[in-house]
Amino acid sequence: MTKGAIFLSVISAILLTACSGEQLSATKIEHAVEGAYAADISADGQYSVISSIHHGISLWDNKKNALKYQWSHQGSEQNQVFLTRFSDDASHVVTATSNEFAIWDVATGEAKGFYQIPESNIRDIAISAQARYVLYGLATGKVVHIDLNTGRRLEFLGHTEKINAVDMSANGHYALTGGNDYTAYFWDTRTAQVLHRFNHPSRVTMVKLEREGKYLFTADNQKQASIWDMRTGQAVSRLDYLARQEIFSSVRFVNQGDYLLTGSPSRVLALWDSKTGKQIQKWRVSPRKNSRPKSAVVYSATMVGEQILSESSAGLLETWNMNK
């Protein structure tokens, strides 16, 4: 190829990127060869846990860019883990199939227990710091909170339809749950007392607690995605987007709750101002190789300093730079 042709190719690539409005990721590391079923990044960005067809469950040390552990559920010939979650302190990981979950110690790599759930399909799961408590939501509408140290089991029966999303405070004392009954509840796991109820015009598909105890986030599958004051239950802001509907596949409060970081099934990764609901910046994660159409689900994202990290169904860990 001549120098002129190379120059024109470079200019064309720049123009295409500019026209699409997409910023390329600063780095890209493959964690799963043919894509992932599930993934999560620890809040500090040090670790990623990925569930995939060829590698089972993999724990990566992102700072060293090294595979740390590979895990699998007992008696499973084929990996069916579709949920992976870090505890808030990144000391443990919980992984779940539709009818069982396992707890893993990040320091040692050892399994701390396998638990069967025969009554209904697990829809979402969360784990507290130091893995003392587990919270999971079921297709029956029931939410279960378990103290793994004492065996105490509390069932929350406030929902009347299928659970879609659950989250739990780091100390395990508070839960936020949302379901197909158009409702999200913030409740005390020690008493099952409802502290705040949030009504939506459609199915609640995503919930999240801010780790410092300031905010709650709830979103439905249509147009309403709101940030609430955790103490009062009053609205703080509503995410401002032009699309007729916005579906979120991941969400996390970052920078002491100042920002909200969201991911979608349509490759979009976005940063929002928590107080105003305004979008600050957005990116599009890389699609899976040879996928038609070019697609990827954002499974998890976090902020470390002024850099964003994301994991997606493409099996890629990508990093993104903030606009100055």
Rank of each mutant, 00 (worst) to 15 (best):
A5N: 10
A5V: 10
F7I: 12
F7E: 14
L8C: 04
V10F: 10
L15T: 09
T17D: 13
A18M: 10
E22W: 08
E30Q: 15
V33T: 13
E34S: 14
E34N: 15
G35F: 07
A36W: 04
D40L: 09
A43L: 13
D44Y: 08
Q46T: 14
Y47C: 01
S48H: 05
S52H: 00
G56K: 04
S58V: 08
W60Q: 01
K63F: 10
K64Y: 12
A66C: 09
K68L: 15
W71S: 01
W71E: 01
Q74Y: 14
G75C: 11
G75Y: 13
G75F: 14
N79L: 00
Q80K: 13
V81W: 01
F82A: 05
T84R: 01
T84I: 06
F86P: 03
S91F: 13
T97M: 10
D105K: 01
V106W: 02
T108G: 06
E110I: 10
A111I: 14
F114R: 06
Y115W: 15
I125Y: 04
Q130L: 15
Q130E: 15
A131V: 03
Y133D: 02
Y133M: 08
H145R: 04
L148C: 05
T150F: 11
R153C: 10
L154E: 07
E155D: 15
L157H: 10
G158E: 02
A170T: 10
G172S: 07
H173R: 13
H173Y: 13
G179T: 02
G179S: 02
G179K: 00
N180E: 15
D181N: 06
Y182R: 09
Y182Q: 07
Y185E: 04
D188Q: 11
T189M: 08
R190Y: 14
T191K: 07
V194M: 12
V194A: 08
H196Q: 06
H200F: 12
P201F: 06
S202Y: 10
R203H: 13
T205Y: 03
V207Y: 01
T218A: 03
T218E: 02
A219I: 03
N221P: 00
A225D: 02
W228H: 03
D229M: 10
Q234D: 15
V236I: 15
S237C: 05
L239W: 06
A243N: 14
R244D: 15
I247R: 08
S250T: 04
S250H: 02
R252Y: 12
R252P: 05
Q256G: 07
D258L: 08
L261E: 05
T262C: 02
S264L: 05
L269Q: 06
L269D: 05
A270H: 05
W272I: 03
D273N: 11
T276N: 07
K282V: 09
K282A: 12
V285M: 03
R288V: 12
R288S: 09
R288G: 09
K289S: 14
N290W: 13
R292W: 14
P293F: 09
A296H: 03
V297D: 01
V297Q: 02
V298Q: 01
Y299A: 03
T302L: 08
M303I: 07
G305H: 06
Q307R: 12
S310G: 01
E311D: 11
S313D: 06
L317I: 12
E318Y: 06
E318L: 08
